[in-house]
Nucleic acid binder design. Sequence first.
DNA 1: GTATATTTGTACGTATGTATA
DNA 2: TTATACATACGTACAAATATA
Lengths: 138, 138
Amino acid sequence: MVPAMVDPRGEVPVYRQVAAMLRARIADGTWPPGAALPSEPDLAAEFAVGRDTVRDSLALLRAEGLIETRRGFRTRVREPQPLQAVPVAPGVTVSARMPTPEERRKLDIGDGVPVLVIGGEVYPADRFAGEGTSTKLR
Amino acid sequence: MVPAMVDPRGEVPVYRQVAAMLRARIADGTWPPGAALPSEPDLAAEFAVGRDTVRDSLALLRAEGLIETRRGFRTRVREPQPLQAVPVAPGVTVSARMPTPEERRKLDIGDGVPVLVIGGEVYPADRFAGEGTSTKLR
DNA sequence: GTATATTTGTACGTATGTATA
DNA sequence: TTATACATACGTACAAATATA
């Protein structure tokens, strides 16, 4: 494990420094998809910061869709899911936004996962993708 | 103004109860797009909760793309922006995800705003939308 | 132009609750 | 049952950016 160092007097807030290092470890495969991160108290001890600061950094990664947290469980790196294609016929509009609380509940959408709106229909973006088509399907 | 009441012993966490009421006021036009919300201490006093609880609720709305917060500024309701159309030719894939910190910085993307990835190109979803086309443009 | 007040951001602490191992 | 882990909620203090007097 690379020695972790944060600079409390740096221009970048400590929780963003911590987030950057955690992000780097996810990117370089130290914690591959599905792997559990160290507990919040352990991370706080390693970086010599308060647990709340660690939680702030984890909140960043969660909002980016990089990790999943559940009460009682260890925090885990999100695993990419296969994307199901949704046809995008000529003239059809495709937009994206964050889901409403109701959509999040009904469609079981995790934190940091947007929705695709294709022709008025709402699709969780971690499970669906649009694909342009030449003929209009119906 | 509707009397604000939270139930500290309810099943729903207080900060989610507060978020729901703020969300309702945005939806019903009490605070239209561009309007400033009351300050965090004022909201804390109104709902009789700690400032930290108010901040947790504001973080939810921010992650949903409903509000914008800036240090020194009052929190404001996000204003919808005109969407520029990006052609989606047959065979082209359209996906959505949260931006990386670098993308957020380079493309000036706010919190709670996903990106559209159209044919490998990245577009902020609050300013761009895909539109299906019958002919491949180049 | 300066000083003060306001507002959100950061960082810490404590305590308790809830779900899982 | 006990321990572990994340979630909620309160508190304090100070920093940084903006607005105002």
